[in-house]
């Protein structure tokens, strides 16, 4: 367990020294969602209708964008190889990396969601549900993404390929997340959709690090 924290600490420290890179997916998320009023309509009542889809597709794309940086640097300088050889469970080390990655790229999306929501005409009563959904959903996206990033290690222009592999697998997250958001906006209870998102997250927490570890072992050869 302590190695998970070691990795977490290391990745957060590294991110702290390279803040600009870390903020890119967040900036992307904000810009994309704010382009919709310009491309569609400034009417808040109409924007409110498409807000769930906009928020979740943008979150999905931002996670895909962030994927590329998950293993890239560690693969390039040989650190990933040392992880494989560390004698510690690789799945645990990669889990630590994924948690750090989520804290840096997934959680901020949930944090800025209220601001985006205001711009899209979402009532403030809907915010707690939306934040919850984004928190749960982005964990799953980071976990699924770790598998995609592992599989495309060492592939030229692997970022695009990783997205192509990962997006179909992320469909359930999109469906449940958008539904929870929609219900929150309509004033209903998003509990059902949130439970499904939580179930996906638990499944992902259980299986994804193992799959990512297998992928990285193949990738570092």
């Amino acid at each position: 367990m302590s190695v998970v924290f070691t990795i977490l600490q290391r990745d957060l420290l590294l991110a702290w020294r390279r803040t600009a890179q870390v903020l890119q997916p967040l900036a992307f998320f904000i810009v994309v969602t704010l382009l919709f009023p310009l491309g569609y309509t400034p009417e808040l009542a109409q924007l409110r209708q498409i807000a769930p889809g906009v928020l979740w597709v943008a979150a999905l794309l931002a996670s895909m964008l962030a994927l590329e940086s998950l293993f890239r640097d560690d693969a390039a300088d040989g650190t990933l190889e040392q992880f494989v050889l560390s004698g510690q469970p690789l799945a645990a080390l990669l889990f630590g990396k994924t948690v750090a990655h989520w804290l840096l790229t997934g959680l901020p999306l949930a944090v800025v969601a209220p601001l985006i929501g205001v711009a899209l005409g979402v009532p403030s009563a809907a915010m707690p549900g939306i934040i919850c959904a984004l928190c749960l959903g982005t964990v799953s996206l980071s976990l699924i993404g770790a598998i995609g990033a592992g599989l495309t290690l060492g592939v030229r222009r692997g970022g695009v390929l990783a997205s192509l592999l990962t997006l179909p697998l992320a469909v359930p997250v999109l469906v449940f997340g958008a539904r929870a958001t929609e219900l929150s906006i309509a004033g209903g209870s998003p509990a059902g959709a949130l439970y499904l998102l939580a179930a996906l997250m638990v499944l992902g927490l259980t299986l994804a690090p193992l799959a990512a570890a297998a992928a990285v072992r193949i990738g570092v050869e």
């Binding site: 302590s2 190695v3 070691t6 990795i7 290391r10 420290l13 590294l14 020294r17 390279r18 640097d73 300088d77 040989g78 650190t79 190889e81 040392q82 992880f83 050889l85 560390s86 004698g87 510690q88 080390l93």
Partner: peptide
């Protein structure tokens, strides 16, 4: 075992000491 490849597996943004600390800690401190 320890494997040292062509290029030293170091993080450019960390200091030498931090690099060694993390490398050792990852192996189970």
């Amino acid at each position: 075992l320890a494997y040292l490849g062509h290029d030293p597996p170091l993080k450019a943004d960390l200091s030498g000491r931090e690099n060694v600390q993390f490398a050792v800690a990852v192996r189970g401190a």
